Simulated scan of single mutants.
Amino acid sequence: MGTQALIRFEDVEKVFQVRRKAGRLRRERHEVRAVDGISFEVPRGEMVGYIGPNGAGKSTSVKMLTGILMPSAGRVTVAGIDPSRERLRLARRIGVVFGQRTTLWWDLPLRDSYELVRRMYRVPDARYRANLDRCVELLDLADLLDVPVRQLSLGQRMRGDIAAALLPDPEVLYLDEPTIGLDVISKAKVRDFLREVNAEHGTTVLLTTHDLTDIEQLCRRVMVIDHGRLVYDGGLAGLHAIGDSERVLVVDFDRELPPVEVDGVRSVRVEGPRQWLRFPASASAAPLVARLAARYPLVDLSVREPAIEDVIGRMCAGSQGL
């Protein structure tokens, strides 16, 4: 797996002209900078989290990367191709899963949708069968192949969309909320599948999500976009440190106890035998749990991750100069 940049954003801007009311009959034209001078590179084979609050410019960025939108300024290249000028040529080299929008045929069984993908992308028979078998097994799709897409649940359809995007062996995969609507077991399967695709095939993945666990388990690098600007590019631990974010450890004891006193955590809420303990998101929960178990009658526990919106909000509030 090389370090060649597969995706390049060079001082990219995207400006939309919108009309807003300025009285009963008048409308004034305003500029909206959805993307405002962003630059970054993504090496071949890297998995990157691309996150930010709603309206930050994430979807606009991905649409420029796929050729749906043309940048107002700057330069976008994917695998050396200008997406807006050579969209059809690029389409054979990328896979896209847009959250609530399916690329599958609504009234056709899943199997027929996949056959259409094979023909559209001219996937050789042997490679198609191998890819389909792998997707069906790892994404647990065997019982869904003959079900019309319109009858699938959101989680089932998301798994179906991910498989369709990967059937042609794309070099780049853009994922928007790939685990939305999935239960815990299905989420784990999707994450394992994406990890395997990246490791075995060197597929470059750009992931947008509101599930911080997706980012933590799949991506070493995260980019944060806010108001159209790239405000952070680095590791997740660094993001937590800048945002001063915290995770919550919810613990159940065998009886009601006073607020716990253990180094590294602080009790913020007590309800009977249950307590809510906060600790820095950059810290490991394992040693904290070990210290709790050594001193208190622990029955059960769970860890709650900070919401991405909270992390970004804290970070931006403390980093106005970025």
Rank of each mutant, 00 (worst) to 15 (best):
Q217V: 04
A34C: 02
I180R: 13
L249W: 04
T103E: 13
V62R: 06
A294K: 12
R220K: 10
M64Q: 14
R221W: 08
R85E: 12
E261A: 06
M70V: 10
R157V: 05
G321C: 10
Y128N: 07
W106R: 10
W106I: 07
Y232K: 08
F16A: 08
E261H: 15
V184H: 09
P258K: 09
R220F: 14
A241V: 08
L236D: 06
N54P: 01
F40P: 07
Y128S: 11
A34Y: 05
E261D: 09
A79N: 08
G57T: 02
R191C: 08
V299I: 08
P83T: 08
A91Q: 13
A286S: 10
E196M: 15
A34M: 04
R129V: 05
E10L: 04
R247C: 10
P53M: 06
D169K: 12
L139K: 05
I94Y: 05
G272I: 02
P148N: 05
V311R: 04
R127L: 11
D226R: 05
V15D: 13
R75P: 02
E261T: 15
L116R: 12
R220C: 15
G228C: 11
D211N: 09
R134L: 12
A286P: 15
I68G: 10
P258F: 15
I185Y: 14
R44G: 11
G99P: 02
V62K: 14
A56Y: 13
C219K: 07
M47K: 15
L108S: 11
P273Y: 15
V270E: 10
D112S: 12
I215A: 04
A199H: 14
I68K: 07
G313C: 08
I38G: 06
F98V: 06
V268L: 13
L141R: 04
L104F: 02
R75V: 03
V149P: 03
